[in-house]
Design a protein around this nucleic acid. Structure first.
Lengths: 340, 340
DNA sequence: CATTGGCACTCGAATAGCGTGAGTGCCAAG
DNA sequence: CTTGGCACTCACGCTATTCGAGTGCCAATG
């Protein structure tokens, strides 16, 4: 049904439309791309492509624009991930390598991604639920107030202030710290809570109550769902580039950006690192973002994915370029995390 | 020159314009406000107000809108901070009191502020330079890699991974931790670097090199200017409410929101807590934001200010309400920080 | 039979003309 | 000083009209 030339035409339409943001006509197509046929032939092909639902015309006397289905075919079959230039790769490396801690990595990544793609970038913080415990620290603030600090393998630091019902002496704190660490360091956070339930038993009965309190706080901290919702957003200013249909594209997107839970659903289930997923228009799991596409990838050390990152923009976007950028940043971040 | 009635007229113009977002005419004014005079009289007053530069007309046959100077007079002389309702106060309290750590406080504040004012809210993290050291922790990751964790009085946690040139044993780490804490806990971060320079001298010569390295990392961490640039932003979606003159108001604002350094300049020099400053239009220290106003306040425990928070929006905003919200949130946050 | 040039047709966008009315400024009277 | 009256201005909205890019169809062609 769709011979090679028709696919060429579709590709040309997508490329031109992405660049010009205007419906593309048969004449302009043959001028800009050397298709080797006349506009009339292209028109015939276009008619078929439209019948098949890959392109559409906004109004009768205008050119064609790709449909979601058209973009989908383009992404799946008609294009490859555009390799980054050496300069881009170097830029990524130098931009990310100065990072001083996890927060820094995340923020640099989001800025970098926004700059590379000229779109809105989103980076999810490494999820606690897929991390392991690197260290637990118990700090005495006052005699009746402790600070619990949890450091994960991915570099995240969670802290909780605990108001104790009863005083606790430094010696007990030291023992508690040691036992906590022995029990959970290296363990997955999802298992950590279970590992500490029996800890209070080892303590003198006078201290059991406070220790139980600390253990409970620790268990609550590692189980806190909200911690997995942490994301960084950047490049919002890039929204202005497609300011035409404000209400249809920018407004819902700005609103979605405020809702971190929505964003995480957009990024989707974590895929394995260096596997970029693309969701186009209606495929995006959020009804208000039907004019939006999402390009996402998991990232994390090793094979498993710790969290997701990606970009969000109008369906009319540079897919090859954005996919390459997302892929590259995900890989670099993964590498940095496995170093650290 | 400006008698009471003229001021009443100005106030009425500001209030109406802020609400309707449309130029207000003499007739509509006397209808909506009981000024007790005829439209003709109001017109005369308006002529004077315009001559003095407090109001202007966008075009000849339209009503008047306030100038920056008009808003300034309104804010300074014609209105008081609108007291919050009991319900609002309660909402603030309950919304903020569930916060579990500093990050949580900041994020909740920014959301709250955005919701209360229906504008873009900005909260600067407590500056390191005005905090004191609460605790320093040195964690052994591997024999040649340490994690330095710095916890400040305001609840901020900074961490640095240090690749050691030489191994270090647990005992030395323990001593280092103890000496570090003795030297700097309770000290201002600005002084902390100086307090640790002589630390290496106390160690065995074999360890001096590594200790010096750690001390240097510590000094670098407390002196890191970039840490003072940390801000949280919320309510960006509220920008859509004034979507008319997109290029003039939204675009530059979105761009400014990406530049944290610019934002901090907007929030301005830290004022003492519970003292709200208002910058209107051209008074804002950023040429591109001439159509924007900023309402900001310092916050922090005690009398001194740790950092700033505020809202940003079009000059045509609800000043009394926003000032009240900013003030209230700043006070509540201050209170929470002094508790914690 | 796919391809092509020709041609009539469609319809959105841009332009121009026009009427309407909110709002003003001025003035003379109270 | 205030007020009603009145002429004037000018942005906004409406309709009419033109213009042209782009299409679909068809007959001719290799």
């Amino acid at each position: 049904m769709l011979d090679d030339r028709k696919l060429d035409v579709l590709r040309a339409i997508v490329e031109d439309y992405v660049q010009s943001q205007e419906p593309v006509g048969s004449k302009a197509l043959v001028e800009r791309h050397s298709l080797g046929v006349s506009p009339a032939t292209v028109r015939n092909d276009m008619a078929v492509l439209e019948e098949e639902g890959f392109i559409t015309q906004p109004h009768t006397s205008a050119g064609r624009i790709p449909t979601d289905k058209g973009y989908r075919l383009f992404v799946d079959k008609l294009t490859d991930v555009k390799p980054l230039t050496g300069a881009e790769k170097r830029a990524i490396a130098t931009f990310l390598e100065g990072a001083v801690d996890l927060d820094d990595v995340v923020h640099r990544s989001v800025r970098l991604l926004a700059q590379l793609t000229q779109q809105v970038a989103i980076v999810q913080y490494p999820t606690l639920s897929r991390s392991t415990v690197r260290h637990v620290e118990v700090v005495t603030l006052t005699t009746a107030r402790l600070l619990l600090v949890l450091i994960t393998s991915s570099g995240r630091v969670e802290q909780r202030v605990i108001e104790l019902a009863k005083q606790i002496d430094d010696e007990t704190v030291g023992e508690l710290r040691a036992r906590l660490n022995t029990a959970v360091v290296g363990q997955a956070l999802t298992d950590a809570a279970a590992r500490v339930t029996s800890l209070p038993e080892a303590f003198h009965r006078d201290d059991k109550a406070v220790v139980t309190q600390v253990v409970a706080a620790f268990a609550a901290a590692v189980a806190d769902d909200r911690s997995d919702e942490k994301v960084a957003i950047g490049g919002t200013a890039n929204l202005v580039r497609f300011g035409e249909d404000f209400d249809r594209s920018i407004k819902p997107l700005l609103e979605a950006l405020e809702e971190h839970v929505v964003l995480l659903r957009l990024l989707g289930e974590a895929t394995s690192p260096s596997l970029v997923t693309v969701r186009i228009g209606h495929e995006v799991p959020h009804a208000q973002l039907a004019a939006t596409s999402v390009i996402a990838s998991g990232y994390g050390p090793d094979k498993q994915s710790l969290a997701n990152l990606g970009v969000v923009g109008p369906t009319r976007m540079d897919y090859p370029g954005s996919m390459a950028a997302v892929n590259a940043v995900a890989r670099y971040v993964s590498q940095i995390l496995s170093d650290a």
